[in-house]
């Protein structure tokens, strides 16, 4: 699969979006230098890679993998500092409650500045031949975030923001620079949301979807005939049937995603008692042999 510079990983809450973003960044870093941009306040993806970025500087995970924490608030602050270069005034303003109220009434502004930051990061990534993987918000909020570019053009019909908005729109629509990856699980609600998100991105917003990752799929361990022979052992049979049902659901989910025009990839359920750095590496290997080889 050909990948753009910036990959925006989103999906329904609880589908393992941060885990997938972390594993994808690790897998890509084996090919080229990669930066994971963690948009989540809790920095779950960064933590899964064993990194704890602070402030606005990337931290090193390996020679080819770095992690940075991004937040809307920090982008607003740096925007203010850019247009008000006198530090004494800009600092004062950022601390002022009045200013806080005004920006609170325009929540799209902060989100928009974050998008603009991603656009700049994509430019840098192209120059330095790098990938950027974004651990984005869950799909509902992610769609709101991406839609903000056109919203800003409406509220700022002229001036700096309008110019930036045009740049951001062009960036999001350029499949060489930006694409979404949608995470889901085989479960019905997650799959539904993945399909809705893909539709909204592609059809309404003109944003490319590089593929869908069906997370936590199980392997087929049992044959139908084997289970039929299990007359006793009711509880064991049920657990085996659960696995078979999950296998069938995974196949059905992939088929439905493909029917909707998306490349679908399975990521295995890790039957481990904890999720940490080692588990993310295992998933990264699965992604390398699956997604990235196709």
């Amino acid at each position: 699969m050909t990948l753009p510079r910036v990959l925006f990983v989103t999906g329904k809450g609880g589908t393992g979006k941060s885990t997938v973003a972390a594993a994808l960044a690790e897998a890509l870093s084996h090919r080229r230098p990669t930066l994971l941009a963690d948009l989540d306040r809790r920095l779950s993806a960064a933590t899964l890679l064993g990194a704890s970025p602070q402030g606005d500087a990337p931290v090193r995970v390996s020679d080819s993998l770095h992690v940075i924490a991004l937040s809307q608030r920090a982008e607003l602050n740096s925007f203010i500092r850019r247009i008000v270069p006198v530090a004494a005034i800009s600092e004062r303003m950022l601390r002022s409650r009045t200013f806080g109220y005004v920006t609170a009434a325009l929540p799209g502004l902060e989100a928009f500045l974050l998008l603009d930051r991603l656009r700049i990061m994509a430019g840098d990534a192209a120059l330095e031949d790098r990938y950027v993987v974004i651990d984005a918000p869950a799909s509902g909020s992610a769609l709101e975030l991406l839609a903000v570019a056109s919203g800003v053009k409406e509220i700022a019909p002229a001036g700096t923001l309008n110019r930036l908005a045009n740049g951001v729109e062009a960036f999001l629509a350029d499949r060489d620079r930006f694409a979404a990856i949608i995470t889901t699980t085989p479960e019905e609600l997650a799959l539904r949301e993945a399909l809705d998100t893909a539709r909204a991105l592609r059809d309404q917003m003109g944003i490319a979807v590089a593929g869908a990752i069906v997370n936590r799929t199980v392997d087929a361990l049992f044959e139908e005939s084997e289970l039929a022979a299990l007359a006793g052992l009711r509880a064991h049979r049920q657990l085996a049937q659960k696995r078979t049902a999950q296998r069938i659901a995974a196949l059905a989910a992939c088929a439905e995603l493909e029917r909707a025009g998306m490349a679908a990839f399975e990521l295995p359920m890790l039957f481990r008692a904890a999720m940490g750095v080692r588990e993310v590496s295992a998933l990264a290997r699965a992604l390398e042999s699956g997604v990235l080889n196709r």
Binding site: I83, V84, S90, M93, I155, T160, L161
Partner: peptide
């Protein structure tokens, strides 16, 4: 007062 001054500058630059 400072915030107000900066906000008007902000208005001019951003076109908001």
């Amino acid at each position: 007062l400072a915030a107000r001054a900066v906000l008007s500058a902000f208005d001019r630059v951003t076109g908001l």
